[in-house]
């Protein structure tokens, strides 16, 4: 698995597309594959942050789902926003979201064979 992180609107997806040449049908934006159908080739999960936020809102959030997915598709590319670099939000949900995504990103970075941080469309390999 390869992990790409960075701030909002930094060109992370474009960077990943150019680097990994993933077919459009294998790009999942803000969601994980539902498990039906066959997937050939590399997968991109773009905006994992959106997926986590939505599943927290829906009450369906489970870390295990994410880690199981990576077990199943160990060659995937995961793209996610860095959201922890700000003032602690007053809103309880927002605080919880930041904590949750931060902790998951640490786990993902541990599992990843490569971690890149994208700023201004440029990737820096940090692992």
């Amino acid at each position: 698995m390869k992990l790409i992180i960075g701030g909002y609107a930094q060109g992370k997806f474009k960077y990943a597309q150019k680097k990994f040449q993933v077919e459009n049908k294998n790009v999942y934006d803000g969601k994980l594959p539902d498990g039906t159908g066959n997937i050939n080739g590399t997968l991109i999960i773009n905006n994992l942050n959106t997926y986590i936020r939505q599943s927290m809102i829906d009450g369906t959030f489970s870390e295990k789902l994410i880690f199981d997915f990576i077990d199943k598709y160990p060659d995937c590319v995961i793209i996610t926003d860095e959201v922890g670099n700000g003032i602690v939000p007053i809103d309880e949900f927002e605080r919880g979201f930041r904590e949750t995504i931060g902790r998951i990103q640490i786990e993902l970075a541990k599992m990843a064979e490569e971690v890149e941080r994208v700023i201004c469309g440029i990737g820096q390999k940090i692992k």
Partner: peptide, 8 residues
Amino acid sequence: IGGSASGK
């Protein structure tokens, strides 16, 4: 230095 939940 790091953000919230960055592992700092």
